[in-house]
Design a protein around this nucleic acid. Structure first.
Lengths: 110, 110
DNA sequence: ATAATTCATCGTAATATTGCAATGAAACAA
DNA sequence: TTGTTTCATTGCAATATTACGATGAATTAT
């Protein structure tokens, strides 16, 4: 039905899925990489940097902002975006715990 | 249009997005966590472990298999699933490079 | 005031995803 | 053979996502 049954999963599993979904589109990956690269706020040139229409970029930015991964401060007529360092670190801990699971290589299968 | 314009992004950005999308559903997160937890093949009890219908689980498994993150070997009448260790490591490198970007904290904004 | 700039929101179209009942295919047991 | 088990596939309905034109709101410039 296009609707994930989140109620049957743990908070941790749902949280991982939410973060992962945010990274599940190359435009959002590109936005975040650019914010890291310039290591500062970016005011507006994201539409030029990435090749999508302005409303589309705005929508992707909104998703990242809703998740808390970026901040957007109004600066006169433009808006200043940057990584939310604290949220990014928190997300990194959650994702790393998931990704860094390790196999003890018991090798009795496959 | 529901169609990501992958052609305007780098291979790396598209690859990150593909992996992230795989983790973007709690059922797939749960499946992978279970495979790690038992640290062995699992033959069939995933449908009981997770609370979704058998065709739904089968579909999620297919996506993970297509990405190469898990292997599925036929074993008589059942199928034996486990993590593909090599692919998982490769994915981890790609994702870590993205997640471990760091701010040098210039602090001249926001 | 008028115009220009910048970004958000609305509305809509196209496509993707999720979930499951029904069914199919393959291996095994009786 | 006939049935049983296990898993994949098909077909469909419901919902989500992606993209963008049109428009709106706010700020600044003239």
């Amino acid at each position: 039905m296009g609707l994930a049954k989140t109620e049957m999963f743990t908070d941790n599993q749902n949280e991982i899925a939410l973060f992962a979904k945010a990274f599940g589109h190359p435009a959002r990956v590109a936005i975040l990489q650019h914010l890291f690269k310039i290591n500062s706020c970016v005011c507006g040139d994201l539409v030029n940097e990435i090749g999508l229409a302005q409303p589309t970029i705005s929508q992707h930015l909104k998703e990242l902002k809703n998740l808390g991964l970026i901040k957007g401060d109004v600066e006169g007529t433009s808006v200043c975006y940057c990584i939310n360092d604290a949220s990014w670190s928190k997300m990194k801990r959650v994702m790393s715990e998931f990704l860094d699971q390790d196999l003890t290589k018991n090798g009795d299968c496959c």
